[in-house]
């Protein structure tokens, strides 16, 4: 290109430079406008987004039992916790500022991702979590009575040995964060809507 620009009179700022700049901008803008629909088509489609919430009947889940349901293609753990499990979870709670429960003032149990048990449940006996290890996405064990649950009685991830407590908080192993709590609401005492 530079070779031909020489034919224009004067050094910089010729009409030809202006034309090059305008053509290149138009081409860049046009290309971006074309590329966007292609990229966007790979995002979740309308029919996928339409399946983003489910209702679960939890009337049959006894104390100490847990069920796994599928939500957005991922497992959701619903555990009906025993009073001992609730107590164990509360025992390791970090201390929070009473005026603002989001501010942690002390963390005696040394939690990696400190959260109080109360902030992770709506009803203490029902713990609802996305059952995906925050390390690399495996599904932790601990839903069945025969599963290993790790040292803290919660969940144990077989892939790289992450251990979660009875509030689903990360306690040991490589995972960086607590198990995610999905958006949910109790529609009745026995029905919960997830998503």
């Amino acid at each position: 290109m530079a070779d031909h620009a020489q034919s224009a009179p004067g050094a910089g700022g010729t009409r030809r430079d202006f034309l090059y700049l305008m053509s290149a901008s138009a081409a860049a803008f046009g290309t971006a406008a074309v590329v966007w629909p292609f990229i966007s088509s790979m995002n979740p489609s309308g029919d996928v987004l339409a399946l983003s919430s489910i209702e679960v009947d939890i009337s049959g889940v006894q104390v100490g039992q847990a069920i796994t349901v599928k939500w957005r293609g991922k497992p959701v753990f619903i555990r009906h916790r025993t009073p001992e499990e609730i107590a164990a979870a509360k025992k390791d709670d970090p201390q929070v500022d009473p005026a603002n429960p989001k501010v942690i003032v002390a963390n005696p149990a040394g939690l990696r991702d400190p959260q109080t048990d109360a902030s992770r449940v709506q009803k203490p006996e029902w713990l609802i979590l996305v059952g995906v290890c925050t390390h690399l996405g495996c599904v932790p064990l601990g839903q069945k009575a025969s599963d290993p649950r790790g040292e803290y009685g919660g969940w144990y991830c077989p892939c790289h040995g992450s251990q979660y407590d009875t509030s689903g908080r990360i306690r040991k192993g490589p995972a960086p964060l607590d198990l995610e709590v999905p958006l949910y609401a109790f529609e009745t005492d026995t029905t919960v809507k997830i998503g």
Binding site: P37, S40, S41, S45, G46
Partner: peptide, 8 residues
């Protein structure tokens, strides 16, 4: 349903 699927 697919984003811009009609256009593609």
């Amino acid at each position: 349903d697919v984003n811009y699927g009609w256009m593609l």
